[in-house]
Simulated assay, not measured.
Amino acid sequence: MSEIRLEGGFVTRVVRVGDTVRRAPAERSGFVHALLEHLREHAWPGAPRFLGLDDQGREVLSFLPGHVAWRPEDAIAARTLDALRGVARLVRELHDLTAGTPLAGASEVVCHNDPSPKNTVYRDSGAGPLPVAFVDWDLAAPGERIHDLAHACWQYLDLGPGWTDAVAAGETLREIADAYGPGAYEDPADLVDTVLWWQDRCRRGIEEEAERGRPAMIRLRETGVVREIEEAHAWTLHHREALLRGLRR
């Protein structure tokens, strides 16, 4: 069958073959395959199914119909309160399905570790796109609930200089946190500080891997992603108190 390259793959080349998706296995693919099997056993529709390896050694995953919001304009269109609440509920479902399992180990849950519009499948509800599943599980690992929640707050809201009203941004953070429900953190400051932690960690990670010669990370650095993350971190740090005012309203 013919292969159709899927757009939006910033790190890994991904192709569609019929009703399947093919991609090269990641470094921790064994863990990811076990996680996807666990989610399949619980009939969770928020992730693709792992179907094995093809004759080229590529992962074979089920194709999830819908639209991945990998373009900036698509991410903005999906930034409705209903869509943001839907993301929070998907993250909560993932966490609740993995809490206390061997996959989570000594951690609270298994985290996706990269929930973002470019890794989310949306479908039109008739009143706008709503999230139905996450893709690109390469970074999934045991972690804490607040890690995925904070990453989602950063990525889906695009926290950074694009916001002119930090208090309003904080109020939207609260909408996401409320949709996720209790148990991720005790103090709203923990959520904002974890956003800052993610921004710093991602910037350093790209720079370190680029210095090691990893082509995908070099491309990200050359296209200005490191600069964008630095600007987002500076904005979040500068507006930390305003974000907290919005979160605590």
Rank of each mutant, 00 (worst) to 15 (best):
N119W: 09
L97F: 02
S116I: 08
A83L: 07
E108Y: 00
L39T: 04
A140R: 12
G100Q: 12
S107W: 12
R79N: 02
A133L: 02
P117V: 08
I176A: 02
R58G: 02
G105K: 06
E73H: 09
D96R: 15
V167D: 14
H95S: 02
G126L: 09
D148P: 00
P102I: 02
D82Y: 01
G181N: 10
L149Y: 07
V167E: 15
L64I: 15
T80S: 14
V110R: 00
L64T: 03
A152C: 13
A127R: 14
V87L: 15
F63C: 03
H67M: 15
E59G: 09
R174D: 03
P65K: 08
L97Q: 12
N113E: 09
A104W: 05
V135G: 08
A104H: 04
V91C: 13
Q56W: 06
Y122W: 07
T80L: 02
T80F: 09
L159R: 01
P102A: 03
A69I: 10
A166Q: 07
T98Q: 09
D96S: 14
V87Q: 15
Y156A: 02
E108I: 00
T80Y: 05
W70G: 00
V110I: 04
E175M: 10
A77T: 06
A104N: 06
L157A: 05
R58H: 08
D96M: 10
G52L: 01
V60K: 09
D165W: 03
G160C: 01
P131F: 01
Y156K: 00
R174S: 13
T101L: 11
D148K: 02
A106E: 14
L64P: 01
A168V: 03
A77H: 11
V91G: 07
V109H: 01
A47Q: 07
L61K: 11
A77M: 00
G66E: 06
Y180H: 02
E108L: 00
V167I: 15
D82W: 01
E73I: 02
